[in-house]
Computed example of a mutant assay.
Amino acid sequence: MKEIKTEDAIGSVLCHDITEIVKDQRKGSRFKKGHIIKEEDIEVLLNLGKEHLYVFEKDETMIHENDAAEILCNLCFNEYMKKSAISEGKIELTSTIDGLFKVNREELFKVNSFGKMMIATRQGNVPVKKGDKLAGMRIIPLVIEKEKMQQIQEKVQKPILKIMPYQIKTAGIITTGSEVYKGRIKDTFTPVIVEKLKEYGVEVTYHSLSLDDHEMTTSKINEALKQGVDLVLCTGGMSVDPDDKTPLAIKNTGAKIISYGAPVLPGAMFLLSYKGDVPIVGLPGCVMYSRRTIFDVVLPRLLAKDLITSDELALLGEGGLCLNCPVCTFPNCGLSKG
């Protein structure tokens, strides 16, 4: 830090706030610490009685917080993102589309454990809408070693963040249950699924009822696949009761079973499989009556064709207990932690 004449301060970085007081109008910072002094600022500063200023000494080995924020932003920035103007050394990113937000957690950890810098994001593997805030980044000090910023650029695999557009546009629903098939009770499951899919612009182009008979259900699934749907959802018949045949029916299609069961409540009896690149999903009864379940957690990933592994499903256990909050904030809650 050094004292220099105001007239000689163009391009220098202020070490302190400078307050402006206008009687009966305002009192506050006219220039904030870290401000880079421009030619047009000189007259204003002199009118504020500042003939000398305390500024950071110029050092070619250091860079200003604004420039450092740009470097951090470039580590994150990706398609379908918009960056804000720099404000007090910070840049924020927002989404330009509806889609699935992804975070490379290992690379994010590298940045945040490197020291003197930070990137904060919203939870990964969650749906975002156009205009949603994604992340903010800045360095902690006002200036930082240029070499340190070069090191983090070399160390991190970019981009750290990604938004995946939804690709699945059509779905088939097979509603299982002899009581529904024979008309003894009304099908209240299918309308719930249709509404959830509608939120993402997915059209149900195939729907059929099936008895609690695994051969019939397998046939219905294959029929939906032949019609070219992007996603198959089987509702009901997912428990361990002897007459619940849906898991066997899905297996008999030749689909690769990723997991039967998930550490999420509601939704433990969830089944995920793929036949080729088409997900075939078994939905437990809780999806019909619970506001949020395992289905809400995995649906955005399925629609973005983001392949889900059994390990990723196993990781859902931490935060996988829905607390049935009086006001639901999903996906901004622990249930969305993936």
Rank of each mutant, 00 (worst) to 15 (best):
G282N: 10
N47V: 02
P159A: 03
L302D: 06
S113V: 12
A69W: 06
I152P: 01
D41S: 09
I168L: 14
I63W: 10
L316F: 07
G183C: 09
F31V: 04
D241G: 09
T218K: 01
G237S: 08
K251L: 14
E70S: 09
D24C: 11
L299Q: 07
T235Y: 02
P331F: 07
I91D: 00
Q227A: 09
D213N: 15
K32G: 09
I144M: 07
M164F: 15
M149W: 03
R26I: 00
Q227I: 03
T293C: 08
T94M: 09
K130Y: 08
D277K: 08
F270N: 02
V240G: 01
E7S: 12
G319S: 12
V156P: 02
V180W: 03
I140M: 14
E107M: 02
Y289R: 10
A314D: 14
D311A: 11
I258S: 08
G124P: 07
K38R: 15
K32R: 14
S208G: 11
P242Y: 10
L307R: 15
M137T: 04
L197Q: 09
K58N: 12
T175G: 03
K38A: 14
L313G: 05
P279G: 02
D230W: 03
H52T: 12
I173Q: 01
A268H: 06
I18M: 07
T6P: 08
K83L: 09
V22E: 15
I258K: 06
S84N: 11
S210W: 03
K182C: 13
N332Y: 15
I63V: 04
L316G: 04
R292N: 14
L271M: 15
N78A: 13
H52C: 10
V278T: 15
E43N: 14
K256W: 08
I250V: 10
M164D: 12
V297W: 06
V232P: 01
G267I: 00
R26L: 07
L323W: 08
I221D: 04
K102M: 13
E199I: 06
I160L: 02
K220E: 12
Y206A: 04
V297F: 08
A262R: 08
G28V: 03
P263C: 07
L307F: 15
F77W: 07
A314Q: 13
T94A: 10
R292W: 05
T6M: 07
N112D: 06
I18N: 05
V298T: 05
I308F: 11
G228H: 11
T170I: 05
K158E: 14
L134C: 10
G276F: 03
G28W: 09
G319V: 01
E223W: 10
K116S: 14
K82V: 02
P127K: 15
E223N: 14
M117I: 01
I4R: 00
K226C: 12
G276I: 01
L211T: 04
M118H: 08
L75Q: 04
K182N: 13
K23P: 14
E20W: 00
V143W: 00
K148F: 02
D17K: 08
A171L: 05
A171S: 13
G172E: 00
L209Q: 12
E40A: 10
E51K: 15
Q227T: 07
N74Q: 12
G89E: 00
I63T: 02
P266L: 07
K196Q: 12
F330H: 14
P127G: 11
K146I: 00
P247G: 08
R184D: 11
L134F: 05
M1E: 11
C328F: 10
G237D: 05
Q227G: 09
S178P: 10
E3P: 00
F270A: 08
